[in-house]
Computed example of a mutant assay.
Amino acid sequence: MDATRYVLTKDYDPFIYQFISNGPRGDIKKIIQFQLIDLENNLYNLAFGDWNELTKQMDDLVVSNNHDKQKVLTTVAFAVKDFIENYPNANIFAKGSTHVRTRVYQIGISLFLEEISNYYRILGYVDDQWELFETGVNYESFLLSKK
């Protein structure tokens, strides 16, 4: 995945990554969090959004429009890669906070599918079932694990 990305940092919590998006709207702090949702299946939810300094919480509905979407998506992909390297048995569930965001994630996966598929198993959820990810199918959510 030879694309530009932002520098990721981690604080005290190994499940939270952060970076700063730079663009015409200024510097925007972004948060990527892996939330354990099913211990038995080692299933983690991938949460992503802007840090809201007023509420001290991540906002996954805000539209920052900093004209760096591909760089942000690549940065999130590198966080997933790092997390899986540290937790190789993890299964990562991803779904956008809106239909449009889920579609953006799908496009991002499709762009690098050949490379990603060498290392990861990617499933898409459609018609009430999981199937191996294919381009051209509109999935509701995604599940990624190390091969």
Rank of each mutant, 00 (worst) to 15 (best):
F112P: 00
G108L: 11
Q129F: 00
K147R: 14
Q35Y: 04
D38R: 09
G124Y: 00
A79I: 08
Y87S: 01
V104E: 03
E114M: 13
V126K: 08
I92Y: 01
E85D: 08
E53H: 04
K146P: 01
F133Q: 02
Q70T: 02
D13W: 12
E114N: 12
G96W: 13
T102D: 00
N91M: 10
R5M: 04
Q35M: 13
I16E: 03
K95A: 12
K147W: 05
K69Q: 15
F15S: 09
Q33K: 15
G96V: 13
I109G: 00
N42L: 10
I109L: 13
L46Q: 05
L46N: 04
I37N: 03
V126F: 02
L39D: 15
F34P: 05
E114I: 14
S97W: 07
G124V: 00
E114F: 15
V62Y: 09
R121L: 11
T98S: 14
L143S: 07
L54A: 15
S117Y: 11
N91V: 11
G96H: 13
Y105P: 04
I107F: 10
I20D: 07
V100S: 12
Y119W: 07
F93S: 01
I116R: 06
V126Q: 08
F78Q: 09
L46D: 08
L113N: 09
T9P: 01
L36N: 00
I31E: 01
S110H: 10
K69S: 15
K146G: 04
Y105A: 01
I107V: 13
L132D: 15
T55D: 09
S141H: 03
T9A: 11
N91H: 11
L46C: 07
D82F: 06
I109W: 10
K71P: 08
F133Y: 10
Y139Q: 02
F83Y: 10
K30I: 08
M1W: 00
M1V: 10
L46V: 08
A3I: 02
A79Q: 02
N65V: 06
A47N: 14
L73E: 08
S97P: 06
D38F: 12
L8A: 04
I122L: 11
L43F: 02
D68M: 00
N22E: 02
D68T: 01
Y87Q: 06
Q57V: 06
L46R: 01
L43C: 04
Y6C: 05
N41K: 15
R121I: 12
I92F: 02
K95T: 06
Y105N: 07
H99W: 14
T74S: 04
I37T: 07
